[in-house]
Design a protein around this nucleic acid. Structure first.
Lengths: 209, 209, 209, 209
DNA sequence: GATGAATGAGTGTTCATTCAT
DNA sequence: AATGAATGAACACTCATTCAT
C-alpha cells in the first residue's frame, strides 16, 4: 500500500466484501473513463455514479468527497505501477547495472504507454489535488526498490547509491512525462527511449571509464 | 512569440496604451499570486479582478473567458523562458558541446527555481487547459535554439542533431519538473542538477569514446 | 396535449409522485404571479424558486432552463384554454351556426377576462420565445374543434369550412387580444363582444341572405 | 406626433440639425435591423451603436436609456402607420362605407405585410415596455380618423359611430396580428383578408338589411 | 443499506450606464 | 460634442453534498 494518505483523503472504508469490491471497481473504472473522455473539470460525482451504476449516495459511502475519489484512483494506479517496478527490480537482482536500468526503463515505459489515454488523464487529474503524500510514497517505494536492485549489481562500483538512484529515477520518470506532454509520436518516443537507455548506461559506467 | 494560440484562447485585444499595459500586468500578477496561493480550482475571475484592482468587466475586455486568462499567463511565462534559453544558446555558440549543455541546464534550472512557487503553480495551471499549442510552440522554439547551438559546437561529431536535441531537452525539462513534483530539497536538487550535467556530458561524448 | 414542444424546451421530467406534482404546481403558480407582478424582464429563476418555496436546484430538475419554464407555463395555459374551447364545441353540436359562434365567443371571452392580469402577463411572456410550435398546436386544435362543430350545424350551408373557421377564429382571438392591448374598460369590452357576435353571425348568414 | 409619451421614455432631445437627424436615422435603422435579426433579448446598446456607426456615448445623448430607444422606434413606426391610415381615411371621404372599410383593410394589411420581418420584430419588441401610452395614442388617432371617415359615408345610417369604429378597428388590427402570429402563408393570409372584407362589409350593412 | 431528490452557495459572464479624456 | 474604456450589479446555471424515505 501507498499508505501515507492524509486523513482527509482516505476512503471512508475499505472494501471488506466481494460485493463492495465490485462496486469500488465500477466506480474506479467509471472515474477513469470519464477522466479520459472529458477531463477532471467535467467530472461530476453524479456522472461517475451514473456510469458506475450506483447512486451518488452509495458513492459517498466509499468516498467522503470528490477529492478522495480522485486520490484513490491515483493511489490505485500508482500502487499497480509500483508493483510492476518492484517486480522488475526483483527479477534483475544480480544483473549488470546497465541491463538493470534498461529493464527499468522498459517496464516503466510500457506501463505508461500501454494505455496512453489513461496515463495522460491521470497525469492531469493528479494536479489539482493534495498529492504530495501520494508522490512521496511512490517515490520512496520506487527509490527503495531501485537502490536495492543496483546494490546487487554484479558491476557495483560502490558509488553513492542514493544519489544515483534518485538521478536515474527522476530522469526516467520525468522524460516519460515530458514526452507525453510534447505529444511525441510513436517513432519519436521510441527513439527517445533508446537514447534514454544509452544515456543511463553511460551514466552508470562513468566511473569505469 | 509563442504565437499559435488557438483562436478561442486568444486575448481579446492587445494593450495599446500605457494604461492598458499596466492593467494587463496587474491582471497577470494577480492571477499568478492567486494561483500560487490557492491553485487553479480556487481561482475566480472576480477574485483576480479584485486583486488586480480592476472590475470584472475590464478583465473581460482583455480576455474573452477565464481560460484565455490562464492561457495568456502561461504563454507569457513560456515566452520569457524561451527567451532566456535562446539567449543562452546564442552565448554558447562555438563552445564545446558539454559546456553548452551545462549552460543550458544551468539556465533552465535557474529560471525554474528562481520562484519555485510560481513554477509549481504554473505547472499545475497549465494542465486543465487546451495547452498543446502552447507546449508545441515552446518545444519547437527551444529545440530549434538548442539544435542550432549544438551544430556550432567545436567538437560537433555530426551525430543526429534532431534526435540528440530532443533527447537532451526532454530529459532536462522532464527531470526538472519531476524534481519539483517530488519536492526535492535544495541539496537534493543541487545534487540532481550536477548528476544531470554529468549524464548529459557523458551522452554527448559517447561517440568520442 | 399541446405536444409538439421543440426538444430544447421540453421539461426535464414529468412529475411522477404526488410531491413532485405539488412542486410543479407551486413553480407554475410562482412564475405566473411574478409575470403578472413584474413582467418577464424581471423574472429571475431565483425569484421563481424562492416564491415557489423550493431551491433553484430543484427548479432546474424540472426545467432545463428559464425558457423551458416560460414555455411550460404557456403550454399549460393553452392546454386548459383549448380544453374549454373543445368542451364548448362539443356542447354545441347540432345547434344553429350563429348560436355556435356566440357560444364560442362567450367561452373564449370569459376564459381570457376571468383573470385579465394573467392573460395579459402570458400574452407578453410568450413573445420572447420560440413559441411557434405552441401557437401552431393550439391553432390546429381549436381549428379542428370549431370546424367539426360548424360541420354539424343544423343550418350548415356547405360553404368552405376551413376558410370560415380560420377567419372566425383568427378574428375572434385577434379581437380579444387587441382589446386587451388597448386596455378597453369593462363597458367598452362588453360592447365589443356584442358587436363581435353580431359581426360573426352576419358572416355566417351571408350565404343565406 | 403620437405625443403622450411618459416623461421617462421620451428622447432627451429632438433632432434639430440635419446631422443629428441622420444619426437618429442610423440608430433607428440599426435597432430595427438588430431586432429583426436577433430579437429584443439579444439587442444591446453597444451593438446598436456599433451598427449605427456611432459610439454608445452618443447614443445616450439621444436616448436616456435602452427603453427609450425601443419606445422611440415603435413611436416612429406607429407614426408612419397612423399617417398612412389617416391618408386613406381622407381619400375615402364621401364614399360608401363598405368601400371605405375595404380601403382601410387594404392599407393596413399592406403596411403590415410590406416588411413582415419588421412588423413581427416590432410586435415583439413592444411587449416588454410601458407601451400603453403608445398604444392609446395610436388607437385614439386611428379611431378619430375612421370615425370621421365613416361619418362622411354616403350611406351613413346614423348608428353609433364610436362603437362601430372601435369594433371594426379592433377586429381588423387584431386579425392582422393574429394572422402574423399563426404564421399564415401568403394564400391563407390573402383569403383571410378577403373574408375580413366580407365580414366587415356585412357588419356595416346590417342595419340596412 | 441504498437511493436520488433537494439544496443553495458559488461562478462565469453580460451589458446598461457613466464619465474621464 | 463625441468617445469607448471602465464599472459592477445582476443573473442563469452547476454540482458537491446531505438526508428523508
Amino acid at each position: 500500500m501507498i499508505s501515507s494518505a492524509p486523513q482527509a483523503l482516505k476512503p471512508r472504508k475499505r472494501p471488506q466484501q466481494r460485493r463492495a469490491s465490485a462496486t469500488l471497481d465500477a466506480i474506479f473504472e467509471a472515474t477513469i473513463q470519464l477522466l479520459v473522455k472529458n477531463g477532471l473539470s467535467q467530472l461530476t460525482t453524479t456522472r461517475v455514479a451514473e456510469r458506475a451504476g450506483v447512486s451518488v449516495g452509495t458513492m459517498y459511502q466509499y468516498f467522503p468527497h470528490k477529492q478522495a475519489l480522485i486520490y484513490a484512483v491515483n493511489e490505485r494506479y500508482l500502487e499497480l505501477l509500483a508493483e510492476r517496478i518492484e517486480a522488475t527490480c526483483r527479477e534483475c537482482q544480480g544483473n549488470r547495472s546497465g541491463d538493470m536500468i534498461e529493464a527499468l526503463i522498459e517496464t516503466y515505459w510500457k506501463a505508461k504507454t500501454d494505455k496512453p489515454d489513461v496515463t495522460r488523464a491521470l497525469y492531469r487529474s493528479v494536479v489539482e489535488m493534495d498529492n504530495e503524500a501520494l508522490i512521496s510514497a511512490f517515490a520512496a517505494r520506487t527509490d527503495a526498490a531501485v537502490t536495492t536492485m543496483l546494490a546487487s549489481a554484479s558491476d557495483n562500483d560502490g558509488s553513492d547509491a542514493r544519489s544515483n538512484t534518485r538521478t536515474l529515477v527522476t530522469i526516467i520518470f520525468g522524460a516519460v512525462r515530458n514526452s507525453f506532454e510534447r505529444g511525441h509520436s510513436g517513432d519519436v518516443a521510441e527513439d527517445l527511449r533508446r537514447q534514454l537507455v544509452i544515456m543511463c548506461r553511460g551514466y552508470l559506467e562513468r566511473h569505469v571509464r
